[in-house]
Write a protein that binds this DNA or RNA. Structure first.
Lengths: 191, 191, 191, 191
DNA sequence: GATGAATGAGGTTTCATTCAT
DNA sequence: TATGAATGAAACCTCATTCAT
């Protein structure tokens, strides 16, 4: 267990350093050495833990996706009506632990890299599919069949677009405001 | 003028090759040599025409932004009501000449690179500002003041989100369908 | 002594793993980790036992040279005439315990590395000298003085050449056949 | 033609530098930078010409093998009897242009590397086969069928063994002496 | 005795860019 | 205008080795 612990701690440290460093310099520009420096480690040790730069990026995205999943579970726990559950999806995506410039930046880099990396592409597909399912499930209960797909696309694209904008932001973000705005968009979409 | 002409022709060829090559390989991965090969030229000649890789990317984005501007002018020419003009913005963004996987892909790479390049960042800001103004101008005539910003963000983020998704698409896109869907989102937003 | 015993056992295991791993991957390509894995140990423990990669290689060669020496002693025990003793040298070199692809392979790598490593170079010189002496001692009794050196070189080079070829072999070797062929070459050389 | 010329000149220069540098440091130890320095070029330019370190080694061996072929043709031109042609093979292998420490050294490294590189292995097989054919063709005219294979192996292994020894030599070699010694071995083998 | 963890050192390779032609 | 030739710079990654446990 002690052994497992060290690995996990180091993993987390390196991943956090990755988020910061990638945000600051851009994924394709940032070097292993920079990330390592950020984590107070050596470039070699990143390879020791993650095998390669791509492996590190994958692990980092997995980490963020996991955070999203946790937020989702948390939010769903108290949502009872379809509308509340739509709110819940938005709340999770714009959760305090996630909706932060550095992470949005990473997310965007992830989107841009996904089509060129099998490993990232897979993660991307899975996540996108999950969000889609959540939206569809609730919208079907609220709207006539022919309106569901338009609404879903409106919501999902909105969400992506917000992240995209957030990644370009100079100052810190306001997750509370983002959630409220998202609620209003939800209201708009389900009339 | 003959000289100017040749230069323009070459520029266009190189830019088209860039769109294709960047789409195929990713901006940060594609090499000058690959782009050159795609254009049937040499890497050295790209530098001759555009000064550097960044210069080429900038020129390419300028080219796409210009196409967008043209489409905008075209669409606005026949739009008379605010709603029609909102449709017009959407129509321009999802114009047949623009809404195509390779170009969406480039657009996404552009977004991802912008924060790390002054030259790209500037282009990005200008374009974003223009679209924002167009939306605001029309929405102000249609909605009460307190609803304008939410609506604008809903629309603009939707638009960005659609491009983002399109960039990940495997098959060819359907611009007509995209425009119709966008109209429906406009309708939704302005009630 | 118990301590000594464990150390010896471990040494032997690691050396055997070295022969296999070097044969499979090549001396300059094989890594400590690969050798360790082959032995079911860790790379760190090899350093514990042999100090360094070069130390391991040296120990391994010492081991093979020792096997050769043993075979020599064994063969000489029953050889009485000069011709028989020449046969004995050949028999020892192509002994069942030595003339095997993996070991020939190692031998060749040893030759190739020797000029660039003091420690290996020393081993190489000593062994070569010993074989040379054995040959000369017997040939002097069989041939006129002016023919001795030619004969010796013919025999010794033949022997080296056979090992070289054996190292390139795909299938298993036939030591019996190799010994017979060598006898015939001896016969040829001493008329 | 001018274009072709520059490439060829550079190729030759780089190959010569390779022979020297590999001899001095060993193939697996020598760096591209060292070879480049020896040639008065940059490491990058070696890759420009040969694609990779392995590509350079292959080209270098091809060059040596070609020299051998030329020597063979030259020697065969004046050889009329079977015995003379056997001499010719030996003369070619120990030709003044080939039998030199640095080249023998390279040859040995080549032998040692061949089993681990498809490209080198192929070259090795082809060369070995050619020499074998030459020997067999002549020996069949001189010896009873059952003695041919032994003789061929004696000669070919002798040749390889001489190169092997030469590679370990400290001082310069004496090709004339080597050829004479080889003739005597030929005489010995064909009685 | 044994090994995960960690790293310094260093090599190959890639690539944008320059320049002579 | 166009491009082979050439290279400096730098990144990723590998690996032998060390050390605390």
């Amino acid at each position: 267990m002690g052994r497992k612990r060290i690995r996990d701690i180091r993993n987390e440290e390196l991943i956090e350093a990755t988020v910061i460093a990638v945000h600051r310099r851009g994924y394709s520009v940032v070097t292993m050495a920079e990330i390592a420096r950020e984590a107070g480690a050596s470039a070699a040790s990143i390879n020791y833990y993650f095998g390669s730069k791509e492996g590190l990026m994958e692990a980092t995205m997995r980490h963020l996706l996991n955070k999203l999943k946790q937020a989702m579970i948390r939010e769903y726990a108290t949502a009872t009506t379809p509308r509340e559950r739509l709110y819940a999806v938005m709340n999770a995506n714009f959760d305090d632990t996630l909706f932060e410039v550095a992470q949005c930046s990473l997310w965007m880099q992830f989107w841009a890299s996904a089509p060129y990396s099998q490993r990232l592409s897979r993660l991307h597909r899975i996540n996108r599919h999950r969000v889609r399912s959540h939206f569809l499930a609730e919208l079907r209960r609220l709207l006539p069949a022919e309106g569901v797909e338009t609404a879903r696309q409106a919501l999902q694209c909105y969400m992506d677009g917000v992240w995209l904008q957030a990644a370009q932001s100079d100052g810190p973000l306001d997750p509370t405001k983002a959630r409220l705005a998202a609620h209003r968009v939800v209201d708009l979409v389900i009339s």
